[in-house]
Protein backbone atom coordinates (compact mmCIF):
# COMPACT_ATOMS: atom_id res chain seq x y z
CA UNK A 1 0.00 0.00 0.00
CA UNK A 2 2.36 2.67 -1.20
CA UNK A 3 1.44 6.28 -0.62
CA UNK A 4 2.34 7.44 -4.08
CA UNK A 5 0.34 10.64 -3.86
CA UNK A 6 3.04 12.52 -2.04
CA UNK A 7 1.82 15.91 -3.14
CA UNK A 8 -1.32 15.39 -1.06
CA UNK A 9 -0.53 17.27 2.10
CA UNK A 10 -1.99 16.53 5.47
CA UNK A 11 -4.26 19.41 6.37
CA UNK A 12 -5.42 20.17 2.83
CA UNK A 13 -9.19 20.27 2.48
CA UNK A 14 -10.70 16.86 1.71
CA UNK A 15 -14.41 16.97 2.24
CA UNK A 16 -16.74 19.94 2.45
CA UNK A 17 -20.39 19.40 3.26
CA UNK A 18 -22.52 22.51 2.97
CA UNK A 19 -26.11 22.86 4.16
CA UNK A 20 -26.87 19.16 3.80
CA UNK A 21 -30.54 18.33 4.19
CA UNK A 22 -31.93 14.82 3.98
CA UNK A 23 -35.53 13.70 4.51
CA UNK A 24 -37.26 10.36 4.41
CA UNK A 25 -40.56 9.64 2.73
CA UNK A 26 -42.65 7.38 4.96
CA UNK A 27 -46.28 6.43 5.36
CA UNK A 28 -46.59 9.11 8.02
CA UNK A 29 -45.29 11.82 5.74
CA UNK A 30 -41.91 13.36 5.09
CA UNK A 31 -39.56 13.13 8.05
CA UNK A 32 -36.49 15.33 8.14
CA UNK A 33 -33.41 13.37 9.22
CA UNK A 34 -30.59 15.79 8.57
CA UNK A 35 -31.32 19.48 8.60
CA UNK A 36 -28.62 21.84 7.41
CA UNK A 37 -25.35 20.16 8.33
CA UNK A 38 -22.00 21.81 7.54
CA UNK A 39 -18.81 19.82 7.87
CA UNK A 40 -15.35 20.36 6.57
CA UNK A 41 -12.66 17.78 6.97
CA UNK A 42 -8.96 18.05 6.26
CA UNK A 43 -6.71 15.36 4.90
CA UNK A 44 -5.36 13.03 7.57
CA UNK A 45 -7.58 14.42 10.31
CA UNK A 46 -10.15 12.59 12.37
CA UNK A 47 -13.58 14.07 12.77
CA UNK A 48 -15.78 12.63 15.50
CA UNK A 49 -19.53 12.77 15.05
CA UNK A 50 -21.27 12.29 18.38
CA UNK A 51 -24.98 12.10 18.87
CA UNK A 52 -27.78 10.07 20.29
CA UNK A 53 -30.40 8.14 18.38
CA UNK A 54 -32.14 10.20 15.74
CA UNK A 55 -29.36 12.77 15.59
CA UNK A 56 -28.73 11.99 11.94
CA UNK A 57 -25.08 11.18 12.37
CA UNK A 58 -25.18 8.05 10.23
CA UNK A 59 -27.53 9.51 7.65
CA UNK A 60 -25.18 12.43 6.96
CA UNK A 61 -22.32 10.10 6.18
CA UNK A 62 -24.38 7.72 4.10
CA UNK A 63 -25.34 10.76 2.07
CA UNK A 64 -21.66 11.33 1.36
CA UNK A 65 -21.43 7.90 -0.24
CA UNK A 66 -24.89 8.11 -1.82
CA UNK A 67 -25.82 4.98 0.11
CA UNK A 68 -29.13 6.26 1.40
CA UNK A 69 -32.21 4.09 0.93
CA UNK A 70 -34.60 4.89 -1.90
CA UNK A 71 -37.02 6.68 0.41
CA UNK A 72 -34.44 9.34 1.17
CA UNK A 73 -34.44 12.74 -0.48
CA UNK A 74 -31.38 14.99 -0.52
CA UNK A 75 -32.73 18.51 -0.73
CA UNK A 76 -31.66 20.96 -3.40
CA UNK A 77 -28.97 23.31 -2.24
CA UNK A 78 -27.11 20.59 -0.35
CA UNK A 79 -23.54 20.29 -1.39
CA UNK A 80 -20.94 17.62 -0.70
CA UNK A 81 -17.64 18.50 -2.26
CA UNK A 82 -14.84 15.95 -2.24
CA UNK A 83 -11.23 16.47 -3.31
CA UNK A 84 -9.96 13.40 -5.11
CA UNK A 85 -6.41 12.07 -5.09
CA UNK A 86 -5.79 13.37 -8.59
CA UNK A 87 -6.38 16.91 -7.39
CA UNK A 88 -9.79 17.24 -8.99
CA UNK A 89 -12.76 18.04 -6.81
CA UNK A 90 -16.17 16.51 -7.38
CA UNK A 91 -19.67 17.26 -6.20
CA UNK A 92 -20.96 13.96 -4.78
CA UNK A 93 -24.63 14.96 -4.75
CA UNK A 94 -24.49 15.10 -8.55
CA UNK A 95 -23.88 11.38 -8.79
CA UNK A 96 -26.64 8.82 -8.95
CA UNK A 97 -26.42 6.14 -6.28
CA UNK A 98 -25.56 3.41 -8.78
CA UNK A 99 -23.44 5.45 -11.17
CA UNK A 100 -19.89 4.45 -12.07
CA UNK A 101 -18.52 7.70 -10.72
CA UNK A 102 -19.81 7.14 -7.20
CA UNK A 103 -18.69 3.51 -7.30
CA UNK A 104 -15.19 4.70 -8.13
CA UNK A 105 -15.33 7.10 -5.21
CA UNK A 106 -16.63 4.40 -2.87
CA UNK A 107 -13.97 1.98 -3.91
CA UNK A 108 -10.96 4.18 -4.37
CA UNK A 109 -11.41 7.34 -2.34
CA UNK A 110 -13.81 6.71 0.51
CA UNK A 111 -14.32 3.46 2.44
CA UNK A 112 -16.88 2.57 5.04
CA UNK A 113 -16.91 0.25 8.04
CA UNK A 114 -19.97 -0.51 10.13
CA UNK A 115 -20.99 -1.57 13.58
CA UNK A 116 -21.80 -5.12 12.60
CA UNK A 117 -19.03 -6.48 10.38
CA UNK A 118 -20.88 -9.75 9.80
CA UNK A 119 -23.43 -8.07 7.58
CA UNK A 120 -20.81 -6.58 5.32
CA UNK A 121 -19.26 -9.94 4.50
CA UNK A 122 -20.87 -12.50 2.28
CA UNK A 123 -21.26 -15.67 4.34
CA UNK A 124 -20.55 -17.97 1.41
CA UNK A 125 -17.07 -16.79 0.48
CA UNK A 126 -13.90 -17.00 2.53
CA UNK A 127 -12.57 -13.86 4.14
CA UNK A 128 -9.49 -14.01 1.95
CA UNK A 129 -11.55 -14.34 -1.17
CA UNK A 130 -13.46 -11.18 -0.34
CA UNK A 131 -10.36 -9.17 0.49
CA UNK A 132 -8.74 -10.34 -2.75
CA UNK A 133 -11.80 -9.24 -4.65
CA UNK A 134 -11.62 -5.80 -3.08
CA UNK A 135 -7.91 -5.57 -3.94
CA UNK A 136 -8.41 -6.64 -7.53
CA UNK A 137 -11.28 -4.23 -8.01
CA UNK A 138 -8.92 -1.30 -7.59
CA UNK A 139 -5.59 -2.62 -8.67
CA UNK A 140 -4.47 -4.42 -11.74
CA UNK A 141 -2.81 -7.43 -10.15
CA UNK A 142 -2.87 -11.16 -10.73
CA UNK A 143 -4.65 -13.57 -8.43
CA UNK A 144 -1.41 -14.66 -6.80
CA UNK A 145 -0.30 -11.10 -6.19
CA UNK A 146 -3.70 -10.22 -4.78
CA UNK A 147 -3.49 -13.15 -2.40
CA UNK A 148 -0.12 -11.93 -1.21
CA UNK A 149 -1.46 -8.44 -0.67
CA UNK A 150 -4.53 -9.77 1.15
CA UNK A 151 -2.48 -11.90 3.52
CA UNK A 152 -0.16 -8.96 4.09
CA UNK A 153 -3.13 -6.79 4.96
CA UNK A 154 -4.60 -9.31 7.34
CA UNK A 155 -1.35 -9.38 9.24
CA UNK A 156 -1.17 -5.61 9.12
CA UNK A 157 -4.51 -5.27 10.94
CA UNK A 158 -3.15 -7.55 13.63
CA UNK A 159 -4.80 -10.81 12.73
CA UNK A 160 -2.57 -13.61 13.97
CA UNK A 161 -1.89 -16.50 11.62
CA UNK A 162 -3.21 -14.63 8.54
CA UNK A 163 -2.56 -17.55 6.16
CA UNK A 164 -5.06 -19.69 8.06
CA UNK A 165 -7.56 -16.89 8.53
CA UNK A 166 -7.38 -16.20 4.81
CA UNK A 167 -9.08 -19.52 4.14
CA UNK A 168 -11.76 -19.17 6.81
CA UNK A 169 -15.37 -18.06 6.45
CA UNK A 170 -16.64 -14.94 8.19
CA UNK A 171 -18.68 -16.91 10.75
CA UNK A 172 -15.52 -18.64 11.93
CA UNK A 173 -14.04 -15.35 13.11
CA UNK A 174 -14.90 -13.64 16.38
CA UNK A 175 -16.44 -10.16 16.45
CA UNK A 176 -13.11 -8.41 16.94
CA UNK A 177 -11.44 -10.41 14.19
CA UNK A 178 -14.27 -9.66 11.80
CA UNK A 179 -14.00 -5.97 12.56
CA UNK A 180 -10.27 -6.14 11.82
CA UNK A 181 -10.94 -8.03 8.60
CA UNK A 182 -13.46 -5.40 7.58
CA UNK A 183 -10.96 -2.65 8.26
CA UNK A 184 -8.49 -4.47 6.05
CA UNK A 185 -11.04 -4.65 3.24
CA UNK A 186 -11.87 -0.98 3.68
CA UNK A 187 -8.22 0.01 3.56
CA UNK A 188 -7.30 -2.28 0.67
CA UNK A 189 -8.05 0.47 -1.82
CA UNK A 190 -5.86 2.96 0.04
CA UNK A 191 -8.70 5.45 0.58
CA UNK A 192 -8.16 9.04 1.58
CA UNK A 193 -11.24 8.96 3.78
CA UNK A 194 -12.48 6.18 6.07
CA UNK A 195 -15.97 6.49 7.44
CA UNK A 196 -16.32 4.42 10.60
CA UNK A 197 -19.93 4.10 11.72
CA UNK A 198 -19.96 2.93 15.35
CA UNK A 199 -17.14 0.48 14.59
CA UNK A 200 -16.53 -0.48 18.21
CA UNK A 201 -20.03 -0.36 19.68
CA UNK A 202 -20.67 -4.08 19.38
CA UNK A 203 -17.25 -4.99 20.76
CA UNK A 204 -16.11 -5.73 24.30
CA UNK A 205 -14.05 -3.08 26.06
CA UNK A 206 -10.74 -4.85 25.76
CA UNK A 207 -11.35 -5.58 22.08
CA UNK A 208 -12.52 -2.00 21.55
CA UNK A 209 -9.20 -0.80 22.91
CA UNK A 210 -7.38 -3.05 20.44
CA UNK A 211 -9.40 -1.78 17.48
CA UNK A 212 -9.05 1.89 18.45
CA UNK A 213 -5.30 1.46 18.76
CA UNK A 214 -5.19 -0.26 15.41
CA UNK A 215 -7.10 2.54 13.73
CA UNK A 216 -4.75 5.15 15.15
CA UNK A 217 -1.71 3.21 14.00
CA UNK A 218 -3.08 2.69 10.53
CA UNK A 219 -3.95 6.35 10.22
CA UNK A 220 -0.41 7.32 11.10
CA UNK A 221 0.91 4.83 8.58
CA UNK A 222 -1.47 5.46 5.68
CA UNK A 223 -2.48 9.04 6.29
CA UNK A 224 -6.19 8.69 5.61
CA UNK A 225 -8.77 10.96 7.19
CA UNK A 226 -11.42 9.36 9.41
CA UNK A 227 -14.99 10.29 10.18
CA UNK A 228 -15.70 8.42 13.38
CA UNK A 229 -19.35 8.10 14.35
CA UNK A 230 -20.21 7.08 17.87
CA UNK A 231 -22.43 7.83 20.82
CA UNK A 232 -19.64 7.03 23.28
CA UNK A 233 -18.02 10.21 24.53
CA UNK A 234 -15.09 8.28 25.97
CA UNK A 235 -14.21 6.79 22.62
CA UNK A 236 -14.58 10.10 20.81
CA UNK A 237 -12.30 11.86 23.30
CA UNK A 238 -9.62 9.30 22.60
CA UNK A 239 -9.69 9.24 18.83
CA UNK A 240 -11.01 12.47 17.31
CA UNK A 241 -9.13 15.67 16.46
CA UNK A 242 -12.28 17.66 15.86
CA UNK A 243 -15.73 16.86 17.14
CA UNK A 244 -19.19 17.72 15.88
CA UNK A 245 -22.02 17.24 18.35
CA UNK A 246 -25.31 16.42 16.68
CA UNK A 247 -28.85 16.64 17.99
CA UNK A 248 -32.00 15.85 16.00
CA UNK A 249 -30.42 16.18 12.60
CA UNK A 250 -28.31 19.26 13.16
CA UNK A 251 -24.84 20.10 14.44
CA UNK A 252 -25.23 22.10 17.65
CA UNK A 253 -21.56 22.55 18.38
CA UNK A 254 -18.32 21.90 16.59
CA UNK A 255 -14.72 22.34 17.62
CA UNK A 256 -11.46 20.66 18.50
CA UNK A 257 -11.73 17.92 21.08
CA UNK A 258 -10.27 20.29 23.67
CA UNK A 259 -12.93 22.87 22.87
CA UNK A 260 -15.69 20.32 23.22
CA UNK A 261 -14.47 18.59 26.35
CA UNK A 262 -12.92 21.50 28.24
CA UNK A 263 -14.82 24.50 26.97
CA UNK A 264 -18.24 23.28 25.86
CA UNK A 265 -20.64 26.09 24.97
CA UNK A 266 -23.91 24.56 23.89
CA UNK A 267 -26.22 23.56 26.76
CA UNK A 268 -26.68 20.15 25.15
CA UNK A 269 -22.94 19.47 25.03
CA UNK A 270 -22.50 20.67 28.59
CA UNK A 271 -25.38 18.54 29.79
CA UNK A 272 -24.19 15.51 27.92
CA UNK A 273 -20.75 15.76 29.49
CA UNK A 274 -22.29 16.01 32.93
CA UNK A 275 -24.69 13.14 32.29
CA UNK A 276 -22.06 10.45 31.80
CA UNK A 277 -20.73 8.64 34.82
CA UNK A 278 -16.97 9.15 35.10
CA UNK A 279 -14.73 6.83 36.97
CA UNK A 280 -13.93 8.15 40.41
CA UNK A 281 -15.48 11.55 39.81
CA UNK A 282 -19.13 11.06 40.60
CA UNK A 283 -18.55 9.93 44.12
CA UNK A 284 -21.99 9.22 45.54
CA UNK A 285 -23.32 12.30 43.80
CA UNK A 286 -26.13 12.35 41.31
CA UNK A 287 -25.63 12.48 37.61
CA UNK A 288 -27.07 15.51 35.90
CA UNK A 289 -29.75 14.06 33.69
CA UNK A 290 -31.17 15.93 30.72
CA UNK A 291 -34.85 16.52 31.30
CA UNK A 292 -37.38 14.85 29.04
CA UNK A 293 -37.03 12.55 26.10
CA UNK A 294 -35.43 12.91 22.71
CA UNK A 295 -38.38 14.08 20.58
CA UNK A 296 -39.48 11.78 17.80
CA UNK A 297 -38.27 13.04 14.40
CA UNK A 298 -41.92 13.25 13.39
CA UNK A 299 -42.56 15.85 16.07
CA UNK A 300 -39.59 18.13 15.72
CA UNK A 301 -39.78 21.04 18.13
CA UNK A 302 -40.00 24.47 16.59
CA UNK A 303 -37.15 26.93 16.84
CA UNK A 304 -34.04 25.42 18.37
CA UNK A 305 -34.61 21.65 18.46
CA UNK A 306 -33.17 21.35 21.92
CA UNK A 307 -35.36 23.98 23.57
CA UNK A 308 -37.79 21.38 24.98
CA UNK A 309 -35.07 19.94 27.18
CA UNK A 310 -32.75 22.91 27.64
CA UNK A 311 -31.95 24.28 31.07
CA UNK A 312 -31.21 27.71 29.56
CA UNK A 313 -34.48 27.88 27.65
CA UNK A 314 -35.56 31.44 26.83
CA UNK A 315 -39.28 31.65 26.07
CA UNK A 316 -40.36 33.43 22.88
CA UNK A 317 -36.88 33.14 21.52
CA UNK A 318 -35.63 29.56 21.52
CA UNK A 319 -39.00 28.09 20.57
CA UNK A 320 -39.59 30.56 17.75
CA UNK A 321 -36.37 31.20 15.88
CA UNK A 322 -33.53 29.01 14.85
CA UNK A 323 -30.21 30.15 16.28
CA UNK A 324 -27.45 31.06 13.82
CA UNK A 325 -23.98 29.61 13.86
CA UNK A 326 -21.77 31.66 16.17
CA UNK A 327 -17.99 31.61 16.07
CA UNK A 328 -16.40 31.22 19.48
CA UNK A 329 -12.91 30.83 18.06
CA UNK A 330 -11.70 30.11 14.53
CA UNK A 331 -12.34 26.42 15.00
CA UNK A 332 -15.10 26.45 17.54
CA UNK A 333 -18.67 27.16 16.48
CA UNK A 334 -21.94 26.84 18.32
CA UNK A 335 -25.57 27.25 17.41
CA UNK A 336 -27.22 28.81 20.45
CA UNK A 337 -28.83 32.16 21.33
CA UNK A 338 -26.71 32.43 24.46
CA UNK A 339 -23.78 33.41 22.27
CA UNK A 340 -25.55 35.46 19.64
CA UNK A 341 -24.99 39.15 20.10
Amino acid sequence: METAENYLVKGDPLLEIKDLKVSFKTDEGIIPAVDGVNISLKRGHTLGLVGESGSGKSVSTWAVLQLLPKSAIIHKGSSIKFHCKDGESVELTDFKSKSREIRNIRGGEISLIFQEPMSSFSPVYTVGNQIMEAVRAHRDVSKEEAEGIAIDMLSRVGIPNPKRRFKQYPFELSGGMRQRAMISVALSSNPSLLIADEPTTALDVTIQAQVLNLMKELQEELGMAIIFITHNLGVIAQIADEIAVMYLGGIVEQGTRHDIFHNPKHPYTMNLLRAIPRLGKTDGGRLVAIEGQIPSPMERPSGCCFHTRCSEYMPDRCNVNIPQITQISPEHTVRCFLYES
Binding site: P160, S174, G176, M177, D204, V205, T206, I207, Q208, A209, Q210, L212, N213, N232, L233, G234, V235, I236, A237, Q238, R257, H258, F261, H262, L273, I276, R278, L279
Partner: peptide, 25 residues
Amino acid sequence: SALMSAIPAPDPDSPMQPIILKGEI
Protein backbone atom coordinates in the same frame (compact mmCIF):
# COMPACT_ATOMS: atom_id res chain seq x y z
CA SER B 1 -6.40 -4.31 35.47
CA ALA B 2 -6.49 -4.74 31.70
CA LEU B 3 -10.24 -4.19 31.67
CA MET B 4 -9.99 -0.98 33.67
CA SER B 5 -7.17 0.37 31.57
CA ALA B 6 -9.22 -0.17 28.44
CA ILE B 7 -12.02 2.17 29.46
CA PRO B 8 -11.74 5.21 27.24
CA ALA B 9 -11.91 8.27 29.48
CA PRO B 10 -14.14 11.09 28.24
CA ASP B 11 -11.23 13.48 28.51
CA PRO B 12 -8.74 14.16 25.74
CA ASP B 13 -6.08 15.02 28.31
CA SER B 14 -5.94 11.59 29.88
CA PRO B 15 -5.15 9.46 26.89
CA MET B 16 -6.05 5.84 27.14
CA GLN B 17 -3.06 3.61 27.73
CA PRO B 18 -4.72 0.28 27.56
CA ILE B 19 -2.95 -2.89 28.47
CA ILE B 20 -3.58 -4.64 25.21
CA LEU B 21 -4.53 -8.22 25.87
CA LYS B 22 -3.28 -10.85 23.52
CA GLY B 23 -5.90 -12.50 21.35
CA GLU B 24 -9.57 -12.92 22.01
CA ILE B 25 -11.78 -14.29 24.72
